[in-house]
Amino acid sequence: MVLEKEKVEGIARLARLELKTTEIEAYSRDLSRILELIEEMKGVNTADVAPMEHPLEIRARLREDQVTETDQRGKYQALAPATADGFYLVPKVIE
């Protein structure tokens, strides 16, 4: 299984990762090696096996619909790269 450079660029776009052009060849080689390792499990007959989603196979717990968290916007926004008037700032999206 070989991941061509174009494929690697496509995956990086989906994953929102900028890769330097000089890095792409190394990623293509490493990711192909990793996929080769992963392919080893493909031959196993699993026609009658149900996928296992959780190690203890527990079900999600439900709780009463009550307010448990208090407003800590100030504390959380103090960690943000850029805020104004209680909003998170990003580059302009709509002209």
Partner: peptide, 10 residues
Amino acid sequence: QAQKVRRLIR
């Protein structure tokens, strides 16, 4: 497929 084989390992 990984989740299925995961069950076999378990």
